[in-house]
Design a protein around this nucleic acid. Sequence first.
RNA 1: GCCCGGGUGGCGGAAUGGCAUACGCAGAGGACUUAAAAUCCUCAGGCCGCAAGGCCGUGUGGGUUCAACUCCCACCCCGGGUACCA
Length: 833
Amino acid sequence: MGEYEPQRIEAKWQKIWEEQGAFNADRDPVRPKYYVLEMLPYPSGTLHMGHMRNYSIGDAVARFKRMRGFNVLHPIGWDSFGLPAENAAIKNGIPPRQWTNSNIQQMKATCKRFGFSYDWRREISTCEPEYYRWNQWFFLKMLGRGLAYRKLSKVNWCPQCQTVLANEQVVDGCCWRHETTAVEVREIEQWFLRITNYSDELLADMAELKDGWPERVLVMQENWIGKSRGTRVRFAVPDLSGIALEVFTTRIDTIYGVSAVLLSPHHPILSELVAGVPGAGAMEERLEAMRKVNLRAADLATAEKIGIFTGRFALNPFSGERVPIWVANFVLAEYGTGAVMCVPAHDQRDFEFAQKYHLPLKIVVQPLSGSVLRVDQMEQAYTEYGRSVDSGPYSGMESAAAIEKMTADAEAKGFGRAETTYRLKDWGISRQRYWGTPIPVVYCKKDGVVGVPEEQLPVRLPENVVLTGEGRSPLANVPEFLKTTCPKCGGPAERETDTMDTFVDSSWYFYRYTDAHNDRAPYDPSNVQYWFPIDQYIGGIEHAILHLIYSRFFAKVMRDLGLIQHGEPVRRLFSQGMVQKGGRAMSKSHGNVVGADEMAQKYGCDTARMYTLFAAPPAKDLEWSEDGIEGCSRFINKVYRLVDRHAQNLKNVESRLSESVDLSQATGKEKLLLRKAHQTLKRVTHDFESRWHFNSSIALIMEYYNEVQAQEPLDQGMRPEVAKRLVELLVLMLAPISSHVCEELWEMLGHSGGLARVSWPAFRDDLAKEEQFEIVIQINGRVRGKILVEDGLSEEETKERALADPRIAPLVQGRTIVKVIVVPRKLVNIVLR
RNA sequence: GCCCGGGUGGCGGAAUGGCAUACGCAGAGGACUUAAAAUCCUCAGGCCGCAAGGCCGUGUGGGUUCAACUCCCACCCCGGGUACCA
């Protein structure tokens, strides 16, 4: 009799897997491919249970799919450029590369300690020149196509990080990494990628993702792109010749209801507009105060509307009406034209604004049906489509038609035009940082901005750079990097000293896995052709916008470069819930990590992995607690002892697939357990295939075990080959989850060659079928009894037996049966009056 | 504000409109042991009752239905997202 020794077993099988190259995946013309991927980690130094949950889900799926006969690609790598390495260097004087690589070493050891079934030959690290040269290569391709460009632009500057932030890295006006540090605005020459060229396509192609991606991710991306069709209309300012205000509206049909023109407090024309107006000085002060207010997103929507009358008027180009020009705090400078028309009757914000400042309310759209709107009865704006009224020649038209006609007329008369606006902005990728991909460009006095020729790639990041964390890009202080010659004229030139946003690295890394060591191209397209798209991508919801929209953009650029044929890299996406500790996402920066190594040491990785799957459904957030992990540990122990108990007797027994069991010869005990086994198999298979409720799968397998346990001794009243198969089924169903111990148990049962070559057991309907059912008898919906009936009993007969039941009959006696509902195999409900 | 999740025992959680609380944790009792650990068995939503049994019970209030954790309406609370986008 042996003892379950997780540490010994886990080390043993990890070694065997490695020696066998058990998880190496190569192109295979026979088996169907399956590409399953977890988002690559940043090498912060510690893999915690949040990571482990992500990888445990992915690994269970990878192993299951292998057992289902797929050629599974399951790779891992390191997102190894980025700020923390540089900060560590500034703080402790350790070179970023050294810090990063030692972290990778540690985390890789932890990964191996958990036995994830990765093809380690394909490991990548984005900070290596072998990888980042292809970032530079892609950049140059985009430069050549005008998709990368430089512009002087306002940027978000975090005074803490001392660097530029992407729009996406600004959260509620503060830095995403320093939640209390307000972001400042600066103007610098920056490199941008023209993601907006793909706005429409990024939006349209979401239709392809509808079945495989979580709804909320698609909604978030849709909002992020923020497409809006409308009309740009010019309002002349009669007192100031040469000045006109342009507004953007999606409801040009309401323009006869305009009560004012509203400007953003940041509108560039403001100072010109208010110059010369009495009280301009005081007004400027109030405007400045309005500009300074910085609200959190949640408060924005409920914030009080504040306006300042400019003293100027504008002319409604349709009606000729003179309307006041106001500045309003709720008008956004960055969106549309920074100015809107105020239509109190048909926009809720305008309604509230008009009420406060007593601007007139004019109804110009009436509902197509229902009660007619009246000015003195309106309590909120009517924002639906309807029929135009009091709108000059457009009165009587339905809204959609009015919008079309009025836009066309505005265009014809030269004071407006149709316009589609987007919220999505081009992607600023310049970072004034050291630890990133150098942007492969030189500046020559004679030739200007020159891309580094492809054959000179990679532009290597110089080592041994002293990092201080001050101001500009550290690379500007490295003369041997900075000074170079112009590739065109050979004259003296300087290199670009900014590096790329690390989101560039992660925008295409999953293509590199298909051909990780190619030194002539980012990848061989034929490899991508074979492995793509990614069948299943698994990661945190926090990447719903940034990473996942940038990767989609990169795929489209690659397609336009002729490198790939598809436009969408990810077929199915799964967003697992966060692992939290103390109510916050587990992360090193929050200082609340539970180390994965510690768990493996304490319980073994099979237990730790099972527990991360058992503690909650994968999509749900999980507050980490060790309470309960003992249960998984105990369960694995029990399974081990069960197998151990019977291994001697069973290991030489010819393994009879349950698929070939002859039911007619089966004993009662055999039937009972085969039934339970196949009922479990059916549901567990379904969970793996589509539902991913691994917590329920594990519970079901536990139930199955309990049933087997209850039927001990298994060597009585049961043929050995059936007993063996029943135990095997238990092991096989657990194999994707707690793989090491299952390998060991499989071996103990007399098998060689490992589980990697074993197929997932086939489900057999006739074995799972119940012969008898317990029927619940209800009276008026309350349970009053139970009877056992054989399958196939007619409804009529079931009803008879229910009514005849000795517990039921007296209750029914003397009362009127209104009706009897019979649900086959489930219940009988007798409705009495 | 709006959008998306969610609210079930002491805890994590389970349940295609059909026995609410599976599975596990923690707990109580028992067996084994000199003892402890481990293991095994039993109990376990609340209230009333010696018991048989009854009543109540899935955030709150309504509704649909023979039957509602599940569907519909209104509301409360928690979490996440967010764009006052004209």
